[in-house]
């Protein structure tokens, strides 16, 4: 099923998408329409153009592949499904996501993966091919964030204040430099073979989705950022 999004307001477009019976839906000429994929179950959406904010909010068992850039609040509180972006992403990508996967070929903005969670067999993943802005993985409670930093030559692939308030999950950063200025709630180590084995399937998926040769991802070390067991996010209070 093909839909032309030209000159369609988001409510109209989303209504059309919700009413399609077939699983595969291709939407052409997407230009800023919000909330695509929200409230849509068991579909596979292929979007051409630039979807607007809130794409895939509360996503549940729907896959979205975008040929273009995406904007802010993609995958907000998503529960299940794959989002693949052949382009860049804006801010608050994957806010509080609990399940599913988000793969972005290029860079992503600020506050990626804030308050990402995990629950039982739901182990969400965010993989960013390029660099990310500040506040990556703040309050992270579960799941895995991988930043590959493709394109970061002499720069740090992540911004400032990474992992403030982190109390679960893992972040992996491919970087020529060891990420510094980290908050006391997190620890950082160079990845060992066990860590690499854990993220290998994510690297494989990234290479497959975006047709990237894996050897270009082997030239720099990977760092593992995780909650600091000696200095956990603890209450600062005295009760009475």
């Amino acid at each position: 099923m093909k839909i032309d999004a030209s000159n369609k307001y988001y409510k109209q477009l989303n209504k059309e998408i919700k009413h399609v019976q077939t699983r595969d839906i291709t939407v052409k000429n997407v230009l800023g329409q919000r909330y695509i994929g929200t409230g849509v179950k068991d579909k596979k959406l292929t979007l051409y153009g630039t979807p607007g904010n809130g794409m895939g909010a509360y996503l549940d068992h729907t896959d979205i592949e975008v040929f273009g850039n995406v904007q802010d609040a993609v995958g907000d509180t998503m529960n299940e499904g794959d989002i693949i972006v052949h382009g860049k992403a804006g801010d608050t990508l994957g806010y509080a996501m609990r399940g599913g996967r988000i793969y972005v070929q290029g860079d992503a903005g600020y506050r990626v993966g804030i308050h990402m969670k995990a629950y039982k067999n739901k182990q969400p993943e965010i993989v960013i091919g390029g660099c990310v802005g500040s506040f990556l993985g703040e309050y992270q409670a579960g799941g895995t964030i991988l930043v590959l930093g493709i394109g970061a030559q002499d720069t740090m692939p992540i911004g400032n204040y990474c992992g403030t308030g982190m109390h679960g999950g893992d972040m992996y950063i491919r970087s020529a430099f060891k990420p510094d200025f980290l908050p006391p709630q997190v620890s950082i180590e160079l990845c060992d073979s066990k860590d690499m084995a854990k993220i290998q399937p994510m690297i494989d998926r990234f290479c497959t989705y975006f047709d990237v040769k894996e050897d270009i991802l082997r030239d720099k070390p990977y760092y593992h950022i995780f909650p600091n067991a000696d200095n956990p996010y603890k209450s600062l209070y005295t009760t009475y």
Binding site: R98, I114, H115, K117, A118, Y119, K120, K122, E138, Y139, A141, G142, G165, H167, G168, Y233
Partner: peptide, 12 residues
């Protein structure tokens, strides 16, 4: 809450 047992639940 859909979070692991015994884990802190932090609302920013």
């Amino acid at each position: 809450r859909m979070i692991p047992e015994g884990s802190d639940a932090i609302s920013p």
